[in-house]
Design a protein around this nucleic acid. Structure first.
Lengths: 237, 237
DNA sequence: AAAAATCGAGCGAGCGCTCGCTATTTTATG
DNA sequence: CATAAAATAGCGAGCGCTCGCTCGATTTTT
């Protein structure tokens, strides 16, 4: 099993890397010409937004707060987005894109091994959400309270992850490795275990729980629930 | 195992019953003298608040929205609370009180049976949150974004429930009924399974999942994770 | 000197909240 | 038992303020 340090997503998940791709997806909204200027300021804007919004909510963050925190002026901000709602959407779709990119590319050599695929998915999800913790907290907290497009995107992303889990479980059942009464229901129950890592991150930090340990715990918990009793006898591997 | 219909909490969880107790706890704030008038209008105020806030967030609900929805005027509302924030607190502490009252009173005859206690707790939690679903959704969504006192209350309530789970697990381990590597960690993982029921209620409704079935699934999932392998062999009961 | 980036005072809309007032019910009085 | 007096409940225009957003002026870069 891997560790957070070994975790290689094949994607740059740093603030700069994420904002570079954010800029590419929104060239027609960001009115700044020089990419290095745009990316640098987007990074400060997003960083500040995540910090303030995760403390008191996106709605309660005023653009004056954001201007002060990011070092730009009120008017300056509007060269980077055309409204507060657009800023929200930019952040939300950056999270969704990261999920697609990272979880959508499992190592091909695991294809025939449902147990390994499940471990990889759970572990990678924990490490991904650890690397982008403020982004995921933001998306989780704000997606519900905002306009239809945002809600839909969040729902779709959530269901996509659930479908990945369900797919692995179904494969495992077909191969006789797992025993699961209801694949859809079980997948639905696994999802909140993954979300808890970033939703309650501060609780786990306070308790000194590392990402590695959390991933191990979730894997053990889920595997116990899907492994046929016969394979779990104390003498089995 | 019980069903939602048989579920008797020993407390009136109807809107009227809850608002009656809410009024008792806040007599010095509610300036309406006649209890039957106060309770009736509080019920309409709270009902409207939960509906609007769960759709677009408490912060985005204006008191004009609330006045229109509840049938009172702007000024009239202020006879029932002394500010928007107080209204929030009234609702949050009603939820906390209900949790204490219902989960704090397990059937005494289960005392010696950790497995039965665990089942009762999980089942009762699902039924309680089903009966007060809009209240719990509201508390979950709004507690974080609001003032210190609210955050603290939410954290304390959350940890209290977790402690109830941990207590049962520890008892089960001591009696050799459960096998759990880390009681605190496992309790932490059970909590989000219970929260998912009201946080994602609409998803489960869309899929036709009943409270009974959800409770059964969670119980099966958790029991698989805490039952020693030996007791799970196909020949065991 | 042209282009790009940034500035910040100012706008109208909408917010939470107040207050002088009316309408209704309860109580006191001859 | 009428009715005056007091208490209670409710009203909604309007206040001060902050919000998201705009735009002509200004600074910085090339």
């Amino acid at each position: 099993m891997g560790t957070l340090n070994e975790f290689q997503s094949g994607r740059d998940l740093s603030m700069e890397g994420l904002c570079t791709r954010l800029l590419e997806r929104h060239r027609e909204i960001v009115r700044i010409k020089k990419p290095h200027v745009a990316v640098a300021n987007l990074a400060r804007i997003v960083e500040t937004t995540l910090t303030i919004a995760n403390r008191k909510g996106f709605h309660s963050m005023s653009l004056r707060d954001l201007a002060e925190g990011s070092g730009l002026s009120m008017g300056g901000l509007y060269a980077y987005f055309d409204g507060k709602e657009t800023l929200l959407m930019m952040i939300l779709d950056t999270v969704a894109a990261a999920v697609d990119e990272v979880l959508g590319a499992p190592p091909p050599d695991l294809a025939g091994d449902p147990r390994a695929r499940l471990r990889w998915l759970l572990e990678t999800h924990v490490y991904l959400t650890e690397a982008m913790q403020p982004w995921f907290t933001f998306a989780y907290m704000e997606a519900k309270a905002f306009p239809q497009a945002g809600r839909d995107a969040a729902t779709r992303s959530e269901l996509a992850t659930e479908a990945l889990i369900a797919d692995i479980l179904a494969d495992g059942v077909a191969r006789g490795v797992f025993r699961v009464a209801d694949v859809t229901m079980t997948a639905a129950l696994v999802k909140p275990l993954l979300q808890d890592w970033y939703v309650k991150r501060s609780k786990y930090r306070r308790r000194g729980v590392t990402p590695e340990r959390y991933a191990r715990s979730v894997i053990a918990f889920v595997e116990a629930a899907v492994t046929p009793p016969a394979d779990r006898s104390p003498t089995a591997p």
